[in-house]
């Protein structure tokens, strides 16, 4: 299977600090990958390099960032523009073939059609996050990077998000997401990457991770914590 997205020995330094050290992995078309790890592990750094926002200190990424959808951890949308104006602006910048259709599709997907005319600054944090995600989906990219997409969503929205992402994956989109909700990783990811202190400690299915720590843990979260503990984190 030819990789839809591959990282080869990617490293990133911030002065003395090594945020990423020789991280390599590849993802096939339609595969869903969860990147998990403690705070400061380098998850955001990895995704922003895959998305072309930052350049790695060394190493390469296989895919042109313009073909990749990127949803940052912090909402990157304009507070003084309405929901619809934000979506239309980015649809045009992304050179989406039919911006009106894309905006309408995203208003339905986010369930924000009735708030379409409201300025983003007046929306709740979760609703802002919905628009933030929608902007990344506008161009229907082959590869989608989501940095903690579900963190501020209510359970119903979370459900809708994963349903939608699952649909995209089934249609062949490669999805890489980060989360601190490891149950989500277990439930929705084909594979998980465990990052800690910039190092890739594990790459495999959730079941493999269970097996790695003896398989006697009560759930995936416990297995994950155990795994980190065994590796000195």
């Amino acid at each position: 299977m030819s990789a839809a997205l591959a990282a080869d020995a990617v490293s990133k330094r911030y002065g003395e600090r090594e945020a990423l050290r020789d991280v390599s992995f590849s993802a096939g078309a339609g595969e869903t990958i969860a990147v998990i790890g403690p705070n400061g592990a380098g998850k955001t750094t990895l995704l922003s390099i895959l998305g072309g926002v930052q350049r790695p200190t060394s190493g390469t990424v296989s895919r042109d960032p313009r073909e990749v959808g990127w949803v940052p951890q912090q909402a990157a949308v304009y507070g003084k523009l309405t929901v619809e104006e934000n979506l239309r602006l980015f649809a045009r910048l992304e050179k989406v073939r039919d911006p009106d259709e894309a905006v309408a599709r995203m208003l339905d997907q986010t369930g924000l059609r009735d708030r379409a005319g409201d300025e983003l600054g007046t929306l709740s944090g979760g609703n802002r996050q919905r628009v933030n995600i929608a902007v990344g989906l506008l161009a229907q990219p082959d590869v989608l990077l989501l940095d903690e997409p579900s963190s501020s969503l209510d359970p119903r929205q979370r459900e809708r998000l994963w349903e939608f992402v699952g649909g995209l994956a089934r249609a062949g989109t490669t999805v890489v997401f980060t989360t601190h909700n490891v149950q989500e990783a277990e439930r929705y990811a084909d594979r998980v990457l465990v990052l800690a202190d910039g190092e890739l400690l594990f790459a495999g299915s959730p079941d493999d991770l269970h097996a790695e720590v003896g398989g006697d843990q009560r759930d995936f979260e416990a297995a994950f914590v155990r795994f980190l503990h065994e590796r000195g984190h």
Binding site: V53, W70, P72, A75, A76, V77, Y78, F90, L93, E94
Partner: peptide, 13 residues
């Protein structure tokens, strides 16, 4: 300030 900068400069503008 709006964090949109990162989104813009990764290929859009």
């Amino acid at each position: 300030e709006e964090h949109a900068f990162a989104r813009l400069v990764r290929g859009l503008v």
